[in-house]
Design a protein around this nucleic acid. Structure first.
Length: 315
DNA sequence: GCCGCAATAT
DNA sequence: AATATTGCGG
């Protein structure tokens, strides 16, 4: 038992939409059917209605019965925009519009009237998957207005509580910092493209790119320090003095590690075998030329591959 | 808490 | 394809 609290936080966030209550409103049966299926696949709790008036009655009875409303723009018994006004203003519910009309004007209008989002039909599963974010955003805005916003962590907890959802993981669980060590990290992901993530508290991390120039600075730093003083932390300091921003110790450690392999310092043949592909690529991309490299293959990769790597290497 | 290293993930 | 992350012994 050791401590890795932040993983737990991610888990809460990842599983958050479970049980979120969605009111789906559309006069088209087929659309209802398709979208319902998608919603359920994403573990939302779905209530459907085919008439705006009916929906309105339900909502007026108990406006806390739903977390979000997903509605078609065009409905026979009421203009979707009108409904939007009522729901958004009167009840403060997040409303997402759907329509096959993808005209810019129409979309703008929907947004101006207060829609959180505008989904052009056919609705993609991706959009449904991240529907819950609108609920969060809306509530998070409410917090901001009241000036109740604490740390991000606090906010997450508050929002989750506010939403009153029976998600799979206890909110409190994340406060007891306990996670098993030596655990395979394997979460959901049946999705093809993801990337939408949770912009609120999980920034999309961008990868560090080792350009020729950066690599030169790296080499300079290492040389300057002397090979045995050149540890990631020191290299980082030196590079930062050289005006390299946005680089972390880990970036350097990783880079250094690959370089170490190239210098073939004490590494086993098996290791070189595993790393060779990466090494070759690094050489190519940074224009490095190395004096020596151990190249031995034992099983695993084919000879054809080996020869290709060799051709790409300049040493 | 950082280091090097290897394995594995993204 | 090109790193990034993780786990472990030191």
């Amino acid at each position: 038992m050791d401590t890795h609290g932040e993983k737990t936080k991610d888990r809460v966030v990842d599983t958050f939409p479970v049980g979120m209550r969605v009111l789906l409103l559309d006069d088209d049966r087929i659309c209802i059917k398709i979208v319902t299926k998608m919603l359920k696949d994403c573990q939302y709790e779905v209530t459907i209605s085919r008439r705006a008036q009916e929906a309105l009655i339900m909502l007026r009875e108990d406006k806390n019965r739903f977390d979000i409303v997903l509605t078609d723009l065009h409905m026979p018994d009421m203009d979707g925009l009108k409904l939007l006004e009522i729901l958004g203003l009167e009840m403060g519910l997040p409303v997402v519009m759907m329509s096959s009309d993808d005209g810019e004007q129409v979309i703008m209008k929907g947004i101006i009237y207060g829609a959180c989002d505008y989904l052009v039909k056919p609705v993609r599963k991706e959009a449904i998957k991240y529907l819950w974010q609108h609920v969060i955003r809306k509530k998070s805005n409410d917090f901001k207005e009241i000036g109740e916003l604490g740390s991000v962590d606090d906010m997450v907890v508050k929002l989750i509580k506010q939403c009153d959802i029976n998600h799979a993981y206890n909110v409190t669980a994340r406060n007891n910092e306990n996670t098993k060590s030596s655990k395979k990290r394997k979460d959901d992901d049946d999705d093809g493209g993801e990337t939408t993530g949770i912009a609120l508290y999980r920034e999309k991390k961008q990868r560090f790119h080792w350009t020729v120039e950066l690599n030169e600075k790296f080499v300079t730093a290492v040389t300057q320090l002397g090979r045995d003083k050149a540890v990631p932390k020191k290299i980082l300091e030196v590079m930062q003095e050289m005006n390299v921003a946005g680089i972390t110790r880990e970036n350097i450690a990783s880079h250094l590690q690959v370089k170490e392999y190239i210098l073939a310092k004490n590494v086993s043949e098996a290791t070189v075998n595993l790393r060779l592909l990466n090494v070759a690529l690094l050489c190519r991309n940074t224009g490095c030329i190395f004096k020596s490299i151990i190249v031995t293959f034992h099983g695993g990769r084919s000879k054809k591959s080996k020869n290709q790597y060799l051709r790409n290497l300049r040493y």
